[in-house]
Write a protein that binds this DNA or RNA. Structure first.
Length: 155
DNA sequence: GCCAACGTTGGC
DNA sequence: GCCAACGTTGGC
């Protein structure tokens, strides 16, 4: 099993919305590296840290799980009215794919970016590496465990 | 294949 | 709103 961190802007799709809807397609990824992680390495049951980005207090705010066997074409890339529309991703030959994510829980105590930066043992996290902007990124089992502990969650 | 211009991400 | 870092595009 693998561990991941997935970013979402709360204005766009918040942890509360995921909690309400139960699960969601992870649409809108328009970066090859992030797409490849979803397509090639994510497996059903993988654990996800749900992260709020581009907000006053960026933080890991919830837990989720990959709930799809495999990726499907991201249909928002065909939708002209979508902000994710991409004319270079035709239906016959889709360029962008997405997985599906299931809500697990909201953290009572979100783990902020600031806390992560100050936490010994998390220096290597991709999240805190300069210039790392991937919206879907792998996390090690150790990093995942430390984050959970910081949140006061049992592993 | 190089690289300048441009667009996006995301912390601050 | 600023801006650094990075990715993509497209002319050559």
């Amino acid at each position: 099993m693998k561990y991941w961190l997935m970013k979402s802007e709360p204005e766009s799709y918040s942890v509360d919305r995921l909690a309400k809807e139960g699960k969601t397609f992870w649409e809108g990824v328009r970066n090859y590296q992030a797409r490849n992680f979803m397509m090639n390495e994510m497996k059903k049951g993988d654990k996800i840290l749900f992260y709020h980005s581009n907000t006053a207090e960026p933080a890991v705010v919830g837990l989720a799980e990959v709930c799809a066997e495999e990726c499907v074409p991201d249909f928002t890339s065909w939708d002209k009215s979508s902000r994710y529309y991409d004319p270079k991703s035709p239906k016959e030959k889709p360029r962008w794919f997405m997985t599906e994510v299931r809500f697990v829980k909201k953290l009572d105590k979100p783990v902020t970016l600031k806390d992560i930066k100050n936490m010994p043992g998390l220096e290597g996290m991709k999240l805190v590496r300069k210039g790392m902007r991937l919206s879907v990124q792998p996390v090690t089992a150790e990093e995942y465990a430390v984050i959970l502990e910081m949140a006061g969650e049992k592993a």
